[in-house]
Design a protein around this nucleic acid. Sequence first.
DNA 1: GTCCTTGCAAATAGTTTGCACGGAT
DNA 2: ATCCGTGCAAACTATTTGCAAGGAC
Lengths: 161, 161
Amino acid sequence: MEKRLERIKKHLHSQGYKLTPQREATVRVLLEHEEDHLSAEDVYLLVKEKSPEIGLATVYRTLELLADLKIVDKINFGDGVSRFDLRQEGAAHFHHHLVCIECGSVDEIQEDLLGDVEAIVERDFNFRIKDHRLTFHGICYRCNSKGNKENKNESQNAETV
Amino acid sequence: MEKRLERIKKHLHSQGYKLTPQREATVRVLLEHEEDHLSAEDVYLLVKEKSPEIGLATVYRTLELLADLKIVDKINFGDGVSRFDLRQEGAAHFHHHLVCIECGSVDEIQEDLLGDVEAIVERDFNFRIKDHRLTFHGICYRCNSKGNKENKNESQNAETV
DNA sequence: GTCCTTGCAAATAGTTTGCACGGAT
DNA sequence: ATCCGTGCAAACTATTTGCAAGGAC
């Protein structure tokens, strides 16, 4: 993990930015919560645990910077909040998401899967693809097996990030 | 177009809602701007031209209602605004979008394209897909040919949308 | 009357911005 | 001495909500 931090630092430097303590703290939180899909507020609260003096605006500014540098991706699942997701190092494309409409969980799919589709789009629509967003909404494997028990269960929300 | 309005009316009635004048005006605007991807504010301004007494909150409430009934889809291209898109009648799935990072245009792809991908996701991740969102970001055919004019390029002009 | 729906205004939520200060070069 | 980055508060934008009033049945 230190290695990735180091590389991010270089990436920042190469663009004329510094890895300030606040930015480092923010990146660390992102690295430690790679699986989650944190909102800016989530990140802020987590950063605050280690660096209580940080301001919310700084977190927003850092996340925006990281998004500009393609270090993180800003995503939006339709609940009015932006979420931030570290890009896999060296990944050609952004990964996909499975959003469960029952428990709210968000899982990731690292496989590309879209190769053929993109070829068709590029050819048929003369569209030069730079990036994509693919999200499936449905019932996740957890809720699927739960539902099989035919239990008219109620509020046991899963992690939901 | 009247026919679609009629069906939407029935759809509302079947769920215990009425097609009030305000709702009708809103739906008409959506029907007349099917190609566009209007924000709530856009819809509001357009509805206001014909029905000046309507309130913004009513438009929001109507759009939310239509989204609940799956008559429209709420989409989000990452600029903090929700946009509303009429669902194709009888379409099993939501259509896809091509967002141009150069000129900001948004084109639609009605073809499904995701059949194979969805089969894989359902099988490998035990995820029951109910809906999806697929957006490509890149350079549209218009900007492609524009950029090509000064360069050496040849026969590839599309007219999709 | 009862239930829905509406317009308006106020409230909220998320995010951005202005500004003066502080630290590193 | 300059430049970048920060914290704070205020500003802004998009959206939601409370409420009194109007209309259909």
